[in-house]
């Protein structure tokens, strides 16, 4: 009377449910591992970038150092820089002096491009999390379905037997309950991981937005300052 015998003796529907739930569990753990790694990496990247950005490094140098491949907050920074440089070069070509009106128009554009970058990053961070959410909310119901189905079958069988005491009912019920157990087994890690990953993602996105705001202010000041071409941080 082990778990194995329970599973082997179960009906076809219960077996299918168990198989589905096993797949769910597999997928959810896959996502959990993948997300855990990638979120940890994003978190570390964000902290490192902030540290270097506020360390007084030249923006151009920072841009060069980041290079081509970038994700997380670096992507936001590069999006802002690219937009800013392109607009500013256009203005400088037409007229030597940047008027406040032109500057604000440029900065609105930069802000927009950075907002888009943040949204993209957020999408990347939260990717696959809906899978976890689905698994965590659906697998208990699927398990419950298997249980109800199994108990239904057991009662149907019971009606044909003359004697119905606990010893004849118990195996059926145990068999049916395996499905619920499996559902919970798949759902619980998914729920915990989903909540944890969502919290981490929110914190990161908030950090990105803060950075975007600060970078935007920085660009605005550099644009209005006399030596605008330098585009240096004045802090």
């Amino acid at each position: 009377m082990s778990i194995v015998s329970l599973v082997v003796n179960a009906g076809i529907v219960v077996k299918l449910v168990l198989l589905l739930l096993l797949g769910f569990s597999m997928v959810s753990w896959m996502v959990i591992f993948q997300r855990a790694v990638s979120l940890r990496r994003a978190d570390r990247g964000f902290r490192e970038f902030e540290a270097t950005f506020w360390s007084g490094i030249d923006v151009r140098q920072l841009e060069e150092r980041l290079g081509d491949s970038h994700e997380g907050v670096a992507a936001v920074f590069q999006a802002g820089m690219a937009s800013f440089r392109r607009l500013r070069s256009g203005i400088v070509k037409e007229s030597r002096v940047v008027t406040p009106k032109q500057a604000s128009a440029v900065l609105v554009d930069v802000e927009r491009s950075m907002r888009i970058a943040v949204a993209e990053e957020e999408g990347r961070l939260t990717r696959y999390l809906p899978v976890l959410a689905t698994i965590s909310s659906a697998s208990p119901y699927i398990g419950l379905f298997g249980t109800v189905w199994g108990i239904m079958g057991s009662f149907l069988t019971l009606s044909s037997t003359t004697r119905a005491d606990l010893s004849t009912v118990a195996p059926w019920v145990a068999e049916a309950l395996v499905a619920t157990a499996m559902g919970l087994f798949a759902a619980i890690p998914a729920v915990i991981a989903y909540n944890r990953f969502t919290a981490t993602t929110e914190r990161l996105v908030l950090g990105y937005r803060d950075f975007a705001e600060e970078f935007h202010t920085l660009l605005y000041r550099s644009l209005l300052s006399p030596r605008s071409s330098a585009a240096k941080r004045d802090q």
């Binding site: 778990i3 597999m26 591992f33 993948q34 790694v37 990638s38 491949s69 970038h70 994700e71």
Partner: peptide, 28 residues
């Protein structure tokens, strides 16, 4: 940036399978 992420799924799959096998063995 999608490609490296996609590649990074290999290790999680292995991890998940190993985990399930361990749990199954523990149960048995």
């Amino acid at each position: 940036a999608d490609k490296p992420q996609e590649i990074r799924f290999k290790a999680p799959i292995i991890c998940a399978v190993i985990l399930h096998v361990i749990i199954a063995v523990a149960l048995l």
